[in-house]
């Protein structure tokens, strides 16, 4: 039984408090999906609100064929995709500040470690922008958000095999892009040096 079923029925009967409860109950999930999809950006809040406006407007069409959470994933990815489409031509800026202190429960990283990580995250999102929408969605949901392939298949209404294929090619494109990303040059060199089967002479740094 879908835990949201009763809530949805009430909302579909026009109960405005049920709408609000849907928002309260799923705001964290939707925010996470949106944030993972678009990365550090000032637009996260706008997109989250947009997702819920769309949830409200489309609620009448939710028939309970799939779980509400799956339907919500689909809607959130669709809205985020539209947002990314609009913003694709815009350069990516980040206004995310490096946190000053350690997060609660997180190991205390020094600011420079945090800054480096923030830069790597930004670099990854720049690379994600080069992927097609379909590949990006699958990769973000699976690798970044940890959604199982089966659920992604349900949410995006595609076969599981297609999810796996898209995932494989998305990663492959990213690997190639990573090797050519200037900001990750240092990271890549460290990794190369650590690899087994390293030739006797250290490899020449790739010329660019």
């Amino acid at each position: 039984m879908d835990p949201d079923a009763a809530l949805i029925t009430r909302a579909q009967a026009g109960d405005t408090t049920a709408f609000r409860q849907i928002f309260v109950r799923h705001q964290a999930t939707v925010s996470r999906i949106v944030f993972r999809m678009i990365g550090p950006s000032a637009d996260v809040e706008d997109v989250v609100q947009d997702v819920f406006l769309n949830v409200y407007r489309s609620l009448a069409s939710f028939r309970g064929d799939a779980k509400f959470s799956t339907w919500l994933y689909r809607l959130a990815t669709n809205v985020t995709r539209m947002h990314l489409r609009r913003g694709r031509s815009r350069p990516r800026f980040s206004d995310q500040e490096v946190p000053e202190g350690p997060r609660e429960g997180a190991p205390a990283d020094t600011p420079d470690v945090q800054l480096e990580r923030a830069q790597r995250v930004e670099a990854l999102y720049r690379l994600l922008d080069t992927l097609s929408e379909k590949k990006r969605e699958v990769l973000v949901l699976h690798d970044l958000e940890g959604v199982p392939a089966k659920e992604i298949a349900e949410a995006l209404d595609i076969p599981v095999l297609t999810v796996r294929t898209r995932l494989f090619y998305a990663r492959k494109e990213l690997y190639a892009a990573l090797a050519n990303e200037p900001s990750l040059e240092g990271v890549m060199q460290v990794l190369l040096d650590q690899l087994p089967g390293r030739p006797a002479q250290p490899a020449e740094p790739p010329s660019r």
Binding site: R120, L124, Y175, L178, A179, L184, V187, L195
Partner: peptide
């Protein structure tokens, strides 16, 4: 190296 770099980046993003 790219595969390992990607895995590390994913960890970064998740964190």
């Amino acid at each position: 190296a790219a595969i390992e770099a990607y895995d590390a980046l994913v960890e970064d993003v998740r964190s």
